[in-house]
């Protein structure tokens, strides 16, 4: 039990870290801006989900694929698929937001609370 948990979490470390390294290489070696890379990752996640690779990867590496933004895309794909199965073509519209709802709502809520509680700190270089 513990051994399989340890294996999965180490795989999560390796795959999650690996995804970050690929993004870092794209930032350093190409003219791609971070925003474009994130869009790329989310779209890639949707693609993984669409071709049916996302779920197997989740059971293999867990948070290694769900925590990076690829997971956001994968979730959207899953949400869309389930919604389409349930309500047909309309699901193409409702599924994405349903799947992204928790992440977006959490970020919005905590963002709003942070805006209430904190004020900006200047950047420091020394």
């Amino acid at each position: 039990m513990f051994l399989s948990m340890m294996t999965t979490s180490l795989l999560a470390f390796a795959v999650g870290g690996g995804l970050c390294v690929v993004a870092q290489l794209l930032i350093d070696k190409t003219a791609l801006t971070p925003a474009r890379i994130l869009v790329l990752y989310v779209s890639f996640g949707v693609l993984l989900g669409a071709v049916g690779l996302f779920e197997p990867l989740v059971s293999l590496v867990g948070c290694g694929i769900t925590v990076p933004l690829v997971g956001f895309g994968g979730n959207i794909a899953r949400g869309v698929r389930e919604a389409v199965l349930e309500q047909g073509l309309l699901g193409a519209l409702s599924g994405g937001f349903t799947a992204a709802a928790v992440g977006c709502a959490a970020a919005l809520l905590f963002g709003y609370l942070a805006a209430l509680c904190f004020r900006g700190q200047p950047k420091r270089i020394s």
């Binding site: 930032i27 971070p34 900006g120 700190q121 200047p122 950047k123 270089i125």
Partner: peptide, 25 residues
């Protein structure tokens, strides 16, 4: 002012990003 310039020209001040070696402060 660094913060006013960051806000206007670049990203929100608390946004986490790396500046390339050619960037200035």
């Amino acid at each position: 002012h660094n913060c006013a310039a960051e806000r206007q020209f670049r990203q929100p001040i608390e946004y986490g990003g790396q500046r390339p070696p050619s960037a200035q402060w």
